[in-house]
Design a protein around this nucleic acid. Structure first.
Lengths: 214, 214
DNA sequence: TGCTTTCATGCATAAACTGCATGAATGCAG
DNA sequence: CTGCATTCATGCAGTTTATGCATGAAAGCA
C-alpha cells in the first residue's frame, strides 16, 4: 500500500491539469489562455482548478518555490570554495535546473516562464520570499568556515547582500539563458558572469586584460 | 494661456483620485481598498478611474516609470568617479527620491510602496522594463570616458550586468530604507552597501574552483 | 456494512478590467 | 456668440480571476 487510491488520483488530476495548462500556454501565450480553457481541456471544474493551484500563475510556476535540495545546500555550506557569491549563485541555478520526473514538461515550463515577463516576475518574487531561508543557509556556511558570530548582525547583513546581488545576477543569467543556444553550458555562463562582476567591482582602473570569453 | 481649462480640470481630477487612493491605502492597506472605494471617495465613476490610471496599482505607482532626470544622467556620464556601480546606484536612488510638487504626497506614496510587497514588485518590474535605456546611459558614460566601442558587445554586456547588479542591490537598500530610522542618510547607506559589495567580491583568490560536473 | 474523511462540483458573489455608446463640456472658428 | 469638432466623464454590459459555502459522491476504515 504505497499509495492510497486517493493520492494516486489526486496526482493524476494535478498532472493532467498542469500538462493541459502548459500546452495551451505554449501554444497561445499565457495571457491568452483562460482558466476555463484549461478546465475544459483537463476536464475538471473551475473550482477544482483553483482548489489545486490557487491561481492561474500557480499552475505554471508549480506548487513549491524553487528551493535548493538538501545535498545542494550541503555542498554549498561544506565544500564551498573561496568565492561566496559564485558558490551561492551556483547553488541557486542548480536548484532552478533541477528537473522533475518528466524532463520535457520541465523544459516546457521553463521556456514558458522565460518568455512570459509576468511569470518571470512572479518567480523572482517567490524567490525573494525565501530570502530568510537563503540567509540562514549562508550563515550556516559562515559558521562552518569558522566565521563565528562575534558580530552576528554584520554577518547577516553580508548574507542579505549576497542574496540581493544574486537576485540581480540571476536576471542577467536568465536573459543569457533565453537568447543563447540550447546546449550552452550553464557553468561557462556562470563563470563569465562572475568574472564580469569582478571586473566591475574590482576597479579602480578597470584594465581589461586579456579576458577573452566565448 | 499656460493651460487650457481642460488640462487644468484633468490635472485636478487626477490629483484628487491619487490623493484619495493613497490616503485610503495608507489607512486600510492596499489590498483592502477596492477601486469602488477610491471612486466614491474621489467622486468619479469607476470607468473614469480606469481611464486615468489603467489599473489599481497604477494610481499608487504614478504615471511615469521612475527614470533619472537629464541633469542626473549628465552627472553620471560626465562627472563619474572611478566606481561605476556606486555612481550608477547613486543616480538610480536619486531618481527614486526625486520629489514631485507635493513632498508629503510623495512620502506617502513611497511609504505605501515600501510596505506593500506587491507594489514593490511592480515598481521593480517597471524599472526592469527600462533596462535598455539604462544600458544606453552607461554606454554613453563609457564613450565619454574613452572606452571606445572596439568591442561593443562586451561593453554592452558589462552595462547589462551593472544594471542587473543594481537591481539586486536596490532590494537590499530598500529593505534598509523601510526598517531604518526616518532620518537615516541615504548616502551613508549607499556607501556601506558599496563597501559590503566589495568585501564580498574582492576575495583575493579569484580562483574559479572547478565544481562538480553537471 | 456503516461511519468518517476527503474530494469534486455547482452556485453565488466579489473585484478588477474592457469595449461601446452617449450626452455633456470644452475649444475653436467664423 | 453661434455652430461645429474634439475631448471627456459616465453608464452599462460583459469577461476573467478568485473565494466562500453547501452538497453529494467516492474512498478509507472499523
Amino acid at each position: 500500500m504505497v499509495d492510497g487510491l486517493r493520492e494516486r488520483k489526486r496526482a493524476a488530476t494535478q498532472e493532467t491539469i498542469e500538462r493541459a495548462a502548459i500546452a495551451l500556454a505554449l501554444e497561445h501565450g499565457f495571457e491568452n489562455v483562460t482558466v476555463d480553457m484549461i478546465c475544459e481541456a483537463s476536464m475538471v471544474s473551475q473550482r477544482t482548478f483553483f482548489n489545486y493551484f490557487g491561481s492561474k500563475e500557480g499552475v505554471i510556476l508549480g506548487g513549491a518555490p524553487p528551493l535548493p535540495g538538501d545535498e545542494q545546500v550541503r555542498t554549498f555550506t561544506h565544500e564551498g570554495g573561496s568565492n561566496l557569491l559564485a558558490d551561492f549563485l551556483t547553488m541557486i541555478t542548480s536548484s532552478l535546473l533541477e528537473r522533475e520526473p518528466d524532463a520535457a514538461l520541465f523544459q516546457d515550463r521553463r521556456t514558458l516562464i522565460m518568455r512570459t515577463p509576468e511569470l518571470l516576475m512572479r518567480e523572482t518574487a517567490r524567490m525573494s520570499e525565501s530570502e530568510d531561508q537563503f540567509v540562514a543557509i549562508i550563515l550556516t556556511r559562515f559558521e562552518i568556515q569558522g566565521r563565528v558570530a562575534a558580530d552576528q548582525p554584520e554577518l547577516e547583513e553580508e548574507a542579505r547582500m549576497v542574496v540581493a546581488l544574486t537576485t540581480g545576477v540571476l536576471q542577467y543569467v536568465r536573459r543569457r539563458w533565453v537568447d543563447s543556444p540550447a546546449g550552452a553550458s550553464t557553468r561557462d555562463l556562470l563563470r563569465t558572469s562572475i568574472e564580469l562582476i569582478h571586473s566591475i567591482t574590482n576597479d579602480p582602473a578597470h584594465n581589461p586584460k586579456g579576458t577573452e570569453h566565448r
